[in-house]
Nucleic acid binder design. Structure first.
Length: 860
RNA sequence: GCCUGGGUGGCGGAAUUGGUAGACGCAAGGGACUUAAAAUCCCUCGGUCCUUGAGGCUGUGCGGGUUCAAUUCCCGCCCCAGGCACCA
C-alpha cells in the first residue's frame, strides 16, 4: 500500500470533527493548559506565515494533550479592519459579506491543515455579541477616567482618510497604504495607558517566560528616564522656560535655548515683533517636514532666532532662544537647554549660528579647548567651569546638582516617560462604534448600559471620498440624550482594532457568555492566564503592550483575576524566499518562472535577494498548492524541520520534497513489517537482548528521551524530527528477522510504534493511519505520551577521546562505569599516545568524565 | 546614530553547562535493482598537503586574550538582519 496523504488526511479530519476530539470544558480534576496563537485577520487566504505559526502551536497543543493536560486551543478572527473597507470601495461588496466569505474560506483551509482547535469556541470580533462587551468596558473606562477625549495633533493619512497612531506610522508613511502622513488637529478618544505605566514597566522583570528581547523592546518603548525639570528665567520679563534634562551635570555649559517649532511659546515670544512673519513662515515649513526625517541624524538642523533671551539659572548668563526643527514638542516640555560642548546636535547648531561654547566636562588627563573642538565631547570626565561642583566626576555629580536645584528652588527631580496614551479613535466604518453621545446641553454622555450594543449599521455608503461613513448616516447619528432626553448626536468614531485583540483571549474562555460583563469569571479563573502564546515578532510592542494594559484594566474592574495575560511567549521568525524577476516584466510568482524562464517573454529569470514572503515581491508559496501536492503533514513537518521556530525560515522546494520522502519512508517501513508485527506482543520487561536488537531498543528509548526534551523544554522541533529520522534509519539498518522471531519483531514493533507516537503532534494524519494499521482502536491523538526506560536508554560503553595539549590524538572505548584512574592509565598506555609522547614530559593528565582525557605534555 | 539579535560546509541547520565541530536533511558524486527511466535501497561527501594513513596541517566573520581545552567566556573590529526616538 502506498502513502497517499490526500486520501487519509481528510478521512481523519472528519473523524476528529465528528468525535469532537478537541472540544474542552473546565475540569477541576485536570491541570489546564491554555495554548494560544495570534488570531488572523481574515484577509482571504492563509499564507505560509500562518501555516508556520499555527503548526508550531498545534504541535505544542497536541503534545500537552497527550501529556494529560486539559488543553484549551481556540481559534477566531480579528475581523474588523481597513482592508474590508478598501475591498468594499474597490469591489462594491459590503465589508461584512467580504469578511464572512474570507472567514469561511480560511476556516476550510485551517481545517484542511488538521489543527486541533476547539471550533465551538470560534469568535469573530466584528459580531455585535463580541464588541458589545468592549463597548461596556469603554463606558466603564470613561467613568474611571481611563478613556478620555482630547484635542490633539495627530498623524493623518489622506488616502485612508483616517488618523494613525504615532507608532502606526512607518518612516513617515501610512503603515497600511504608504501614503505620506500629514498633521491634523482633531478631537480624539484616548485610553490612559500611562495610568498603568509603572506596573507595565515593573512586570517587564516579572515575566521570565518572555523573550528577553521583547521585554527590552517594551522597556525602551515605555522609556523611563530620571532627570530634572529646570526653570530658565526670562531675561527681560517674568516667567521662565521649563526644560527637562537628564544631564544636569552639563547645566553650567548651557549657552542657548531651543524650542520645538510647533510649541505655542514660539509664537508667544515673537508676537508683535518684526520677525513675527518670518517665524510663522518657519513654523509652517517645519510642520510640513516629515517627523521622522526631521529628527534623523543627517537631516539639516534648522533654527531661527526668536529675538528673545532667557538666563542660565546657575550662571546668570543670557541665553538666546531659538525655534528648532529637531526638537520634539511632545517629549518633555518641548524645550531643550543646549550644551554645545557636550552634545553633538547642539554643537552643530552652535557652529552654524556662531554661538558661545563653554567646556564643563574635561576628560581625565586632558584639557579641552572650546575654540579648537571639532565635535562635542560626549564621554565621561571631570567638571570644570561649574562653580562649587568643579573637580567632581560628572557621573557622580548628577544627584548633587539635583539637590542644589531643589534647595535653590530653581528646579526639581522628575521622571519622564516616552510612552504616550493610546489613541483609539478611527474615522472609519468597519470597527466597533464608540458608545458615546454628544448632547448640546449635557456634553459627552455614555450610552445607557441597557442600550448596548451600539450596533454598526449596515446601510452605509462607502466611497473613495473618505470621511467617516457613520457621520454621513443621519439615522445613526440622530439620537436622544440619555440624560436629558433632548436631541443629541452619536459619536461616529470607531475603535482601533487593537482594542478587540486586547481581550479576545479572555472571550475564548466563555465565548457564548451573554450576561454582563460577557466574561464568565469562574471560567476565566480556570483558564487564564494563557500558558503559551505564539506569534510573530512584529507584535513585540503594540499588541502585546496593549493586551497587558487592557488585562490590568479588566482586573481592576473585577472582571478577571490575573495581572498579566501571557505567561510564556514564543516569537517566531518570518518566512522568507528568494525573489525572482524578469527584466521586462518585473517580479514573478514562482509558477510564472518555471524552468528559470519568464512565462510571458521566455527571457532568463534573475534570482534576487531572499526576503520576507510578501504579495508585492511575489515570492509567495500557496499553502493550497502544497497541500494538494504533498498533503498537510508534509507542509507541517517541513515548516518545523527547516529551522527552529524563533529563527527566520528560508523556503526551499527541495526541502519540502525531502520532508515528503521521510514520511513515505516511515510509511514504507511500517507497511513492510506490518504482516509480521501485527500480532506480536510487546516485549516482556525483563527480556535480555543482544547485538543490534539491543542497540535498536536503546535507540528507541533514547529517541523518546530526546524528543520529549526538545519539545517540552526548547520547542526545537527540528532536532526532535532529526532524532526520529535517526530512529527510522536505524530500523532500516536492521537485518530482517524471520517471521517467527517474536523477540526481534517485538523490538522492531516497539521502535516503529515509538516513531509513530513521537510524530503524532507533528504529523497527526499519517500517524493516526499508521496507528490504526498497527491494530489500535483508539485515536492516536488521545494516547499518552510515551515514557522512556532510563536503564534501557543508558549506554554500556562510551568513547573516550584522548588529547595531547588539547588536540585530538586517539580514541578508546571503555565501559561506562570504568574507574577514572584506569581510564587515565589506559590513555597513557595507548600505542599511538606512547609514540607521540616519546621524549616529552607529561605535566598533567585531565579526565573529563565520560568525555575525554587531555594529556598536557612538554617536549624536552 | 542608538537598541536588539545574528555570522558554523555548496545550502538549511546540529553541537542543551568551556570538553570529539559539522547530527539530521537538501544538493552533489558513486554503487545495487531495472531492457531503460522514475521510484527505492546502500555508500562517499569542510578545505588542503603528502609518503593515501585508523595520516599531517588547517577550519565556526576578522584580530587579540583567558584556559590543559573556546563555535561557547572576555576585549577590540568588520559584516548582515530586525526595531527605533537626535528623548535632551
Amino acid at each position: 500500500m502506498k502513502y497517499e496523504p490526500l486520501v487519509i488526511e481528510e478521512k481523519w479530519q472528519k473523524k476528529w470533527e465528528d468525535e469532537k476530539a478537541f472540544k474542552v470544558t473546565e475540569d477541576p480534576q485536570k491541570k489546564k493548559y491554555y495554548l494560544l496563537e495570534m488570531f488572523p485577520y481574515p484577509s482571504g487566504k492563509i499564507h505560509i506565515g500562518h501555516v508556520r505559526n499555527y503548526t508550531i502551536g498545534d504541535v505544542v497543543a497536541r503534545y500537552k494533550h497527550m501529556k494529560g493536560f486539559n488543553v484549551l486551543h481556540p481559534m477566531g478572527w480579528d475581523s474588523f479592519g481597513l482592508p474590508a473597507e478598501n475591498a468594499a470601495i474597490e469591489h462594491k461588496i459590503h465589508p461584512a459579506k467580504w469578511t464572512n466569505e474570507n472567514i469561511n474560506h480560511m476556516k476550510k483551509q485551517l481545517k484542511r491543515m488538521g489543527f486541533s482547535y476547539d471550533w465551538d469556541r470560534e469568535i469573530s470580533t466584528c459580531e455585535p455579541k463580541y464588541y458589545r462587551w468592549e463597548q461596556l468596558f469603554f463606558i466603564w473606562m470613561y467613568e474611571k477616567g481611563l478613556a478620555y477625549k482630547k484635542r490633539s495633533t495627530v498623524n493623518f493619512c489622506s488616502k485612508c482618510d483616517t488618523v494613525l497612531a504615532n507608532e502606526q506610522v512607518e518612516s513617515g508613511l501610512c503603515w497600511r497604504c504608504s501614503t505620506e502622513v500629514q498633521e491634523k488637529v482633531l478631537d480624539q478618544w484616548f485610553f490612559k495607558i500611562t495610568a498603568y505605566i509603572e506596573e507595565l514597566l515593573e512586570y517587564c522583570d516579572k515575566l521570565p517566560g518572555w523573550p528577553e528581547r521583547v521585554m527590552t523592546m517594551q522597556k525602551n518603548w515605555i522609556g523611563k528616564s530620571y532627570g530634572c525639570e529646570v526653570d530658565f528665567p526670562m531675561a527681560d520679563s517674568n516667567g521662565a522656560i521649563k526644560v527637562f534634562t537628564t544631564r544636569q551635570d552639563t547645566l553650567f555649559g548651557a549657552t542657548f535655548m531651543l524650542v520645538a517649532a510647533e510649541h505655542p511659546l514660539v509664537m508667544q515670544l515673537t508676537k508683535g515683533k518684526a520677525i513675527e512673519k518670518d517665524v510663522l513662515q518657519f513654523v509652517e515649513k517645519v510642520k510640513k517636514q516629515d517627523k521622522l526625517m526631521r529628527t534623523s541624524e543627517y537631516y539639516e538642523k534648522e533654527g531661527l532666532f526668536l529675538d528673545a533671551y532667557c538666563k542660565n539659572p546657575l550662571t546668570g548668563q543670557g541665553m538666546p532662544i531659538f525655534a528648532a526643527n529637531f526638537v520634539l514638542a511632545d517629549y518633555g516640555t518641548g524645550c531643550v537647554m543646549a550644551v554645545p560642548t557636550h552634545d553633538q546636535r547642539d554643537f552643530e547648531f552652535a557652529k552654524k549660528f556662531n554661538l558661545p561654547l563653554i567646556v564643563v566636562i574635561q576628560p581625565k588627563g586632558k584639557t579641552l579647548d572650546a575654540e579648537k573642538m571639532a565635535e562635542a565631547y560626549v564621554d565621561e570626565g571631570i567638571l570644570v567651569n561649574s562653580g562649587q561642583f568643579d573637580g567632581m566626576e560628572n557621573t557622580k555629580v548628577l544627584e548633587a546638582i539635583a539637590d542644589f536645584l531643589e534647595t535653590q528652588g530653581k528646579g526639581k527631580r522628575t521622571i519622564q516617560y516616552r510612552l504616550r496614551d493610546w489613541g483609539i479613535s478611527r474615522q472609519r466604518y468597519w470597527g466597533a462604534p464608540i458608545p458615546m453621545i454628544n448632547c448640546d446641553k449635557c456634553g459627552i454622555v455614555p450610552v445607557d448600559e441597557k442600550d448596548l450594543p451600539v450596533v454598526l449599521p449596515e446601510n452605509v455608503k462607502l466611497s473613495t471620498e473618505g470621511g467617516s461613513p457613520l457621520a454621513a448616516l443621519k439615522e445613526f447619528v440622530d439620537t436622544t440624550c440619555p440624560k436629558c432626553g433632548g436631541k443629541a448626536a452619536r459619536e461616529t468614531d470607531t475603535m482601533d482594532t487593537f482594542v478587540e485583540s486586547s481581550w479576545y483571549f479572555d472571550r475564548y474562555c466563555s465565548p457564548d457568555c451573554d450576561t454582563k460583563p460577557g466574561l464568565d469569571r469562574k471560567k476565566l479563573d480556570y483558564w487564564m492566564p494563557v500558558d503559551q502564546y505564539i506569534g510573530g515578532i512584529e507584535h513585540a510592542i503594540l499588541h502585546l503592550l496593549y493586551s497587558r494594559f487592557y488585562t490590568k484594566v479588566l482586573r481592576d474592574f473585577g472582571v478577571i483575576g490575573v495581572d498579566e495575560p501571557f505567561t510564556n511567549l514564543l516569537t517566531q521568525g518570518m518566512v522568507c524566499k528568494e525573489t525572482m524577476k524578469c527584466k521586462e516584466h518585473g517580479y514573478l510568482f514562482p509558477e510564472q518562472a518555471a524552468d528559470g524562464k519568464c512565462h510571458i517573454c521566455g527571457k532568463d529569470v534573475i534570482i534576487g535577494k531572499t526576503e520576507k514572503m510578501s504579495k508585492s515581491l511575489k515570492n509567495v508559496i500557496d499553502p493550497d498548492y502544497l497541500i494538494k501536492t504533498y498533503g498537510a503533514d508534509t507542509a507541517r513537518i517541513f515548516c518545523l524541520f527547516a529551522a527552529p521556530p524563533e529563527k527566520d525560515l528560508e523556503w526551499s522546494d527541495q526541502g519540502v520534497e525531502g520532508s515528503f520522502r521521510f514520511l513515505s519512508r516511515l510509511w514504507r517501513i511500517c507497511d513492510e513489517y506490518l504482516e509480521d508485527i501485527k500480532a506480536v506482543n510487546p516485549l516482556p520487561s525483563g527480556v535480555g537482548l543482544e547485538g543490534e536488537l539491543k542497540g535498536l531498543r536503546r535507540k528507541t528509548h533514547q529517541t523518546i528521551r530526546k524528543v520529549t526534551i526538545d519539545i517540552e523544554d526548547r520547542f526545537h522541533f527540528n532536532t526532535a524530527i532529526s532524532a526520529v529520522m535517526e530512529l527510522v534509519n536505524a530500523v532500516y539498518q536492521i537485518k530482517r528477522p524471520a517471521s517467527d522471531d517474536k523477540i526481534a519483531l517485538a523490538t522492531i514493533r516497539e521502535a516503529l510504534e515509538a516513531a509513530v507516537i513521537l510524530l503524532v503532534p507533528i504529523v497527526p494524519h499519517i500517524t493516526e493511519e499508521l496507528w490504526q494499521m498497527l491494530g489500535h482502536k483508539t485515536l492516536a491523538a488521545d494516547i499518552s505520551w510515551p515514557q522512556f526506560d532510563p536503564a534501557v536508554a543508558s549506554e554500556e560503553e562510551m568513547t573516550i577521546v584522548v588529547q595531547i595539549n588539547g588536540k585530538l590524538r586517539s580514541r578508546m572505548t571503555v565501559a561506562v562505569d570504568e574507574d577514572p584512574e584506569k581510564i587515565k592509565a589506559d590513555a597513557l598506555a595507548d600505542e599511538k599516545i606512547i609514540s607521540l609522547l616519546s621524549g616529552a614530559n607529561v605535566l598533567k593528565v585531565i579526565y573529563v568524565p565520560k568525555k575525554l582525557v587531555n594529556i598536557v605534555a612538554q617536549h624536552k
